[in-house]
Design a protein around this nucleic acid. Sequence first.
DNA 1: TCACAAGTTTAACCCAGATTAACAAATGGT
DNA 2: ACCATTTGTTAATCTGGGTTAAACTTGTGA
Lengths: 260, 260
Amino acid sequence: MYRSNLESIFMPHDLSLLGAKTRPLPLPTSTNARNLDTHIAFLPEDKAALDSLEIRKRVFTKGCDIIHEGQQLQNAYILCSGWACSYKLMRNGTRQVINFYVPGDLIGIRRLLLPNSDDSLCAITRVEVGEINLQDLLEAFDGNGRLAMSILWSTLRDEAIVVQHLVDVGRRRPIDRVAHFFLELGSRLSLVGLGTKTAYQCPLTQSLIADALGLTAVHFNRVLRQLRELNAMTFHEGSVELLDAKRLERLADFDSSYLR
Amino acid sequence: MYRSNLESIFMPHDLSLLGAKTRPLPLPTSTNARNLDTHIAFLPEDKAALDSLEIRKRVFTKGCDIIHEGQQLQNAYILCSGWACSYKLMRNGTRQVINFYVPGDLIGIRRLLLPNSDDSLCAITRVEVGEINLQDLLEAFDGNGRLAMSILWSTLRDEAIVVQHLVDVGRRRPIDRVAHFFLELGSRLSLVGLGTKTAYQCPLTQSLIADALGLTAVHFNRVLRQLRELNAMTFHEGSVELLDAKRLERLADFDSSYLR
DNA sequence: TCACAAGTTTAACCCAGATTAACAAATGGT
DNA sequence: ACCATTTGTTAATCTGGGTTAAACTTGTGA
């Protein structure tokens, strides 16, 4: 049994991840989806489809649970700024981070339709989201095949990412996982105009990433050092630089096409 | 690096998993979805929605790739009888099984909309499927919100399963993984009327399951023995019996609600 | 400016699980 | 009934990476 990063879970600074204190800090402003076009991962045509929905803006503070287990009426959100992640806490105190979300990502759809999902969603930094009402969505579905298609597409992309993640954790060496992780992140961020594929800002802590990759924070750190010594990449003070992307891609057997 | 079950991959009997020889054996019979109601995992209302689609029946022989990497025109399928799985082959000869599919499951949707997915789909036993044409699907989407919703729901359920699988591989002890695996399978099968939650037929080989759970075949077998000695479950000659489901559920921290 | 908290880095120890090998049992083809 | 191929079982050995713990950095707020 892995009890990695247990401390971090029980430390005050991480209580948020346990859902102990949730203060959604709602600054609701009714607006239209067209105001969200800062970063949208949808296809251009699909973005238009979203415009038909009324969307309220909300802000969540760093470390605050966006969706917590057992909450009654759920909403879906479009992430406008900031980072979030979905994770599952195990009874044994371990946690598995399932996915990180960056601006442009659509989150909470699964929970909307499958209310029994037992994973949680948490703001890693201060986060601005556009709230999508379930009722609106259902109604929009009937008349608007494009919107439905667009949501489905986004969901499938999400699944593809989780599938890659599964392959990562199941069958890659730690060093390959780390390489794959930073390559994927670079691709996703550059797609929405946040940094380039080989240099971007990343506010995640090492323990958080370790919990995503199924490693301990200590070992993740060891691997980072390895990669640094290979002159392949660096990750310092929230800045990621992929110095030798070719090498990383070879390590990770990475092909970004599943993201598009 | 794990090179589990390498032999099995390079052995002749498993060439099929490499996509070396693919003979789809098409016995196409035009029919209607209503003829597929042997086992359907959809909600009853959703099943009706499917009736609007023309569906051709096809048969794939055991071990044959249903969808292979790089194939041009893809289709989605409803699995009518038999078992299939999706998997990804790694460059190092390893493979990760992503999901197993049982009758009633909708397969190939992801590949339909994200043609660049690099995983493959393979018939484990002789398999009968109903073929869904992409064009039909797209057209049906526009007029039929229920159908869209139903497909989306099925996709989200699929994602939920993969998420559970990820948590499994990332953060559970091997014995818990195995328990979780057989519990989930029991739930899924009993939902479509194939066996009960605690006793069912399962045509999977130990290496195949091991490749799903991120274990070696040898270790998987050890764990099976452990569970047998605990009088918790047995798996012999394709028959699974969960003798002590309570204990298994405790081990796996299992809650089947994400499947419904 | 100091103290404490959050996160990073390194080193020492050791166990779960991978690897290998060898055999037994089952399956299938002729 | 035979042999060949696959699949399952068990035991022996070895190592990757988890665990622990302690020093070090940085940032933050009193």
